[in-house]
Design a protein around this nucleic acid. Sequence first.
DNA 1: GCCGTTTTCGGCCCGACTGTTTTCAGTCG
Length: 577
Amino acid sequence: MENNEIASIFRDITNLMQIKGENAFRVRAYENASDVVDSLEHSLKDLHAEGVDLKSIPGIGKNISDKIEEMLLTGRCSKLEELFKTYPAGLLQILKLTGVGPKKAALFFKELGVSDIDALEAAALAGRIEPLPGMGKKTEEHILKAITDLHSVSGKRSLANPLSHAKEICAFLKAALGVIKCVPAGSVRRWKDSPRDLDILVVTDSANTVAGKVFVKYPHVREVLSKGDTKVSVILDDGLQVDLRILGKEDFGSALHHFTGSKAHNVAMRERAVKMGLKINEYGVFKVSDDTRVGGASEESVFKAVGLPWIAPELRENRGEIEAAEAGKLPVELQADDIRGDLHMHTTASDGSADILTMAEAAIERGYEYIAITDHSHATGIANGLDEARLMENIKAIDNVNNILAKRGLSFRVLKGAECDILGDGTLDYTVEALRRLDCVVGAIHSGFNQPRDVMTARIVKALSTGLINILAHPTGRLIGRRPPYEVDIEEVMKVAKRNRTFMELNSYPDRLDLKDTHLKLAKEMGILVAVSTDSHSPQGLSNIHYGIHTARRAWLEKKDILNTRPLEEVMELFGK
DNA sequence: GCCGTTTTCGGCCCGACTGTTTTCAGTCG
């Protein structure tokens, strides 16, 4: 059983325990365990096999450790099976309806025998919800609407979408309200790979209610979910939920910290505050004894009040950042200036929109010292992949561009590369002779995504074992919101990669961000350098590097952990060339 | 159910908004 499956079972247990009405703190323990398991970089299966005591993981105690062990050994979870005997799985679907939580689900189940969404819809249509205690006509209407919306609400989306909305909304509000501070917060500010909503913080010194009134008139608002003096929630026409928070400027720091989250980070921060006789909320940090305000104007002041240095938003997931901050061991944030080159991009030779020289000039413009041109290989026919004859022509074209740049007195270097397909059986799409003529071979999967886990793992292992691949591109193949990652034992792949001097890519394209943060953290722990690349198909694509930089920060990667923060000679040496 | 520079027992984060209510429970983030 994989971590995500175990996390999902703990999530189901959490929900059913809530419906059952169990002790809230016990419920929270399972909820917390679900998050902890989901963000582990190591597979529990491996840890258990290596004899690691699972109780050493924070948030995992005796009980939950036993349950994990049961799942690993039997593939089943008796606690969940027990809960399912009384509470049907359909109740979990009911909880997905907005406005319906465990209390209402329990009420409908107990009073009406409703155990799935269809039965709930029938009950609402028959007017059987309204007479229940605490329910009314509006509750019934909202339930019917929530059932209709369930299918139209879009799921995961990449960061690019909410970021562009944030830009537009802030411009709209500034145009209407004049001088205000308007910044995205929430998961977008933490650069989480697939945000579920967009949080925007507005700071004014005029009457608070104005910003909310203006915001609901934003042209792309499809529906207003709730509207108060300091908080307005809407759905945009493409299904994105936007929560706007309006606060005074003296609260800016505490408000920004509060609405940046994550929830788990905030909870940990508040628990820390409580132990120090303090209370943290969105309005500031206060002494419990006499309500004196001891912080809140800036984020720094919030952290300082609880004895910590400022923690970068990307780290705020309660994955050890508070402990690291206390110990003075926070990672040094990777900066855009640290990046010296980009080792994955395409040109008109395959499916890019610009030629080699144009891409090189765009990279020079960014202050880079080198790039690798890595057009597709023959098997990726849909991308006009190059056969070996065309690859040889491309090599000549790259030599030619290097000559042109040298004549301009530039020391910039274009590496001869390829994005070589790892074919279905693990063989490579170019011959050894062809690959040996290249400076930078990027290996990638572009077909056969549905192979079973062991087959896929063996396929990639076989390819890496040739020792011919310098960088494994987008190692899990996911496209956020469109295609799940293929099944693969990434830890095994990385072990083989390390032996063969293959580096892992962090693909900066916002729809990919592959490897993801927890896998990157694992790479760092295993001592594998990461190539932060853009996979650009145009000169503009190079700017996607900032998605990679922030994702690297989420994984606690520093300059020293990144391949392309190094000078070209060192990169070539690491490639064994 | 987890956890421990106040504890192996007794704690466990904080507030806005809605709907159904006359003071609050439920949901959400």
